[in-house]
Design a protein around this nucleic acid. Structure first.
Length: 640
RNA sequence: GCUGACGUAGCUCAACUGGCAGAGCAGCUGAUUUGUAAUCAGCAGGUUGUAGGUUCGAUUCCUAUCGUCAGCUCCA
């Protein structure tokens, strides 16, 4: 007998050689049913794996993150098998589980399109019905290589060849008699366990992500242990589509794109209101936090970009032009301009920390295939700022930046923020002591604020470490926006100095930070986050006043005028349309508040309040409503 | 940039195997005077992304090109 210790600490006795599946059965029939794989002493294994000695054993179900991965991975195998049956000449590359589903990269002469997906799905269903079993086999390297070579699976052969020398054996999963794939496993015992799945899309993908290598066909799919979960997932995808800022931008008349300027957004009047409100808010915060604001030119002499290192590192993304036969470049970043500003005066230590902000419009040549609404454009405005400080001020400055980021995100409705700290990459400049100082400053600042973060070793910029802030929107999608970078390189390259108390010239440290990142992108993210129903302070139209019929236009106009005098963006809709139609228009344009006025309201000096998506709130005196509206705007309140 | 799909009225989408380019919404004109998500009627709206080609005839087939979308790569 052996002793099996379960995750909850309970202990069970089993005969030696009992399988993980038998342990699951011993615990209960429900668990045995839900079991996908197991863990023996922390190592993931198949259910059929025998336990030979005393061990820690865990049963993995879909609910475990690892179980989910196994579930999806097995579905990827299922899809690969179906494809091999339909197109035996197909060669398999890789097919992992991913964050929301799985994919398989396949090389085959037939061009797949979405139309072939149902055919593959039908084949998969047949394999599920047949409950095709999985069998694991361990082969030594040479045998495995010969096995795949003989089957013409050249990608698998390449993977085996690329394995580190110390790897002696390779595991293979056989599904049924005619399908095999190299795989670490574990896998579900048979395809019957796949209860519900859907293939979503086909796209090209490079073998090993290298654009110089073979383009493969990638098929994406998703699978769930129950139909309801699949239905929910599909609904979520539709919800995301409904919130797409590119579609809402059109519907709400916020911005547009044209063939004449691919990747260069046109901001319409309504989009401009939101854009300016975001900037106004940001400027208010800048004042509170003792920043000064500057503005530097869009085009500067090319020499500057040689000096800054951008020509070496960023040339591909830059636009160049000639003025009077001299070479110029359109700025892709604002820092060199800011450095010119710093250098235009002598600075005393008394001035530090110096906080210099710039809403700088930058241009970057992005590859045509990357462009994506406002999320990926060729020109955008950074809410940029550079802090120049003494080394001993670094930490306090970083803390200030972190506080700034969180304050702005809170106001904008983002509560879930994921923070990452990236440290020194292999290719970098500066000495270790300086890097350590900078990294510690970032780390200490995060710790002092009690912020959890993910460490990305070696992911920093070549000139310094950085903190990135990722916003999680309502659909749990993550967007990198804010960044705080410590930079010792630029002050060096541009020979920045300040005068120290002893009259010596000292080198300041530079912090580079952005909060929205790109104002355009941030606007796009907010559009999706609020599904176009912006908080009142941002809404292009904040209030629509609707008289029930024409005789009440005068009273409605007076209400509207009152709001307008108070600075509210108000619209009087006294068109010759039915009340319902005008309300519908206001609702589809996502106006946060509608004030309906009829005889009753007129006589009482009141309005009937209706809020976007919430319906009627009630009848209130005009004074009270005006006060509420003003307060909601001033407080930048989010009402949902 | 690469692979694939797509491009028809301001918007959303029709148009069989190549045979007179159509609808809803929006717009304009008129009627209707409205109590919480679409009042009715009429009118107007097009070089079918662009440039070639095949054909008696091309929105439809072919080539090129531009753009968009899904990915890959890259990034704010």
């Amino acid at each position: 007998m052996i002793t099996v210790t379960l995750p909850d600490g309970s202990i069970r006795e089993h005969p030696a050689g009992a399988t993980v599946a038998q342990v699951a059965e011993g615990i209960g029939p429900g668990l045995a049913q839900a079991a996908l794989a197991g863990k023996i002493d922390g190592a993931a294994v198949d259910l059929s794996t025998p336990i030979e000695h005393d061990a820690q054993v865990a049963i993995l179900t879909y609910r475990d993150p690892e179980g989910t991965e196994i579930y999806r991975h097995s579905t990827a195998h299922l899809m690969a098998m179906a494809i091999k049956r339909l197109w035996p000449e197909a060669k398999l590359a890789i097919g992992p589980a991913i964050e929301d589903g799985f994919y398989y990269d396949i090389d085959m002469p037939t061009r797949l399109s979405e139309e072939e997906l149902p055919q593959i799905e039908a084949e998969m269903k047949a394999l599920i019905k047949a409950k095709v079993p999985a069998r694991r086999e361990i082969l030594d390297r040479a045998t495995a290589r010969a096995f795949f070579d003989q089957r013409g699976e050249s990608y698998k052969v390449e993977m085996i060849d690329d394995l580190p020398d110390e790897v002696e054996t390779v595991s293979i999963y056989h599904h049924g008699d005619d399908f095999a794939d190299m795989c670490r496993g574990p896998h579900m015992p048979h395809f019957g366990a796949v209860k519900s799945f859907k293939l979503l899309s086909v796209a090209g993908a490079y073998w090993r992500g290298d654009e110089n290598r073979q383009m493969l066909q990638r098929i994406y799919g998703i699978s769930f242990p129950d139909k309801k979960l699949l239905a929910e997932h599909i609904k979520m995808l539709e919800e995301a589509k409904r919130r797409d800022h590119r579609i809402l931008g059109k519907q709400l008349d916020l911005f547009s794109f044209h063939e004449e300027g691919p990747g260069f957004p046109f901001f319409h009047a309504k989009g401009m209101i939101i854009y300016n409100e975001l900037m106004n808010y940001c400027r208010e915060e800048l004042r509170k936090r003792n920043y000064q604001e500057i503005r530097t030119p869009l085009i500067l002499n090319e020499d500057l970009w040689h000096r800054s290192g951008h020509w070496d590192h960023y040339r591909e993304n830059m636009y160049f032009t000639k003025i009077d036969d001299r070479d110029f470049a359109v700025k892709p970043m604002n820092c060199p301009g800011c450095l010119m500003y710093y250098k235009s005066n002598l600075h005393s230590y008394r001035e530090l920390p110096l906080r210099v902000a710039e809403f700088g419009q930058v241009h970057r040549h992005e590859k045509s295939g990357c462009l994506h609404g406002l999320f990926r454009v060729r020109t955008f405005t950074q809410d940029d700022a550079h802090h120049f400080c003494m080394p001993e001020q670094l930490e306090a400055e970083i803390r200030g930046c972190i506080e700034f980021v969180f304050a702005v995100y809170k106001t904008c409705g983002f509560e879930n923020i994921h923070v990452e700290l990236s440290t020194r990459p292999e290719k970098s400049i500066g000495d270790d002591a300086v890097w350590e100082l900078a990294t510690d400053a970032l780390k200490n600042s995060l710790d002092a604020k009690g912020i959890d973060y993910q460490l990305n070793p070696g992911d920093g910029a070549f000139y310094g470490p950085k903190i990135d802030f990722h916003i999680l929107d309502c659909l749990k999608r993550s967007w990198q926006c804010a960044t705080i970078q410590v930079d010792f390189s630029m002050p060096e390259r541009f020979d920045l100095t300040y005068v120290a108390p002893d009259q010596s010239r000292q080198r300041p440290v530079m912090i580079h930070r952005a909060i929205f990142g790109s104002v355009e992108r941030f606007l796009g993210i907010m559009t999706e986050h609020f599904a176009g129903g912006f908080p009142m302070w941002l809404s292009p139209t904040q209030v629509t006043v609707i008289p029930v019929h024409e005789d009440l236009s005068e009273y409605a106009a007076a209400v509207a005028e009152r709001l307008k005098t108070e600075g509210v963006r108000v619209h009087l809709d006294d068109r010759n349309e039915k009340l319902g139609a005008r309300l519908r228009d206001a609702e589809t344009q996502k106006v946060p508040m509608m004030l309906v006025v009829g005889e009753k309201e007129k006589n009482a000096g009141a309005v009937n309040v209706r809020r976007h998506k919430m319906g009627q709130v009630g009848t209130l005196p005009v004074d009270e409503v005006v006060a509420q509206i003003l307060e909601e705007i001033k407080e930048r309140r989010i009402v949902q």
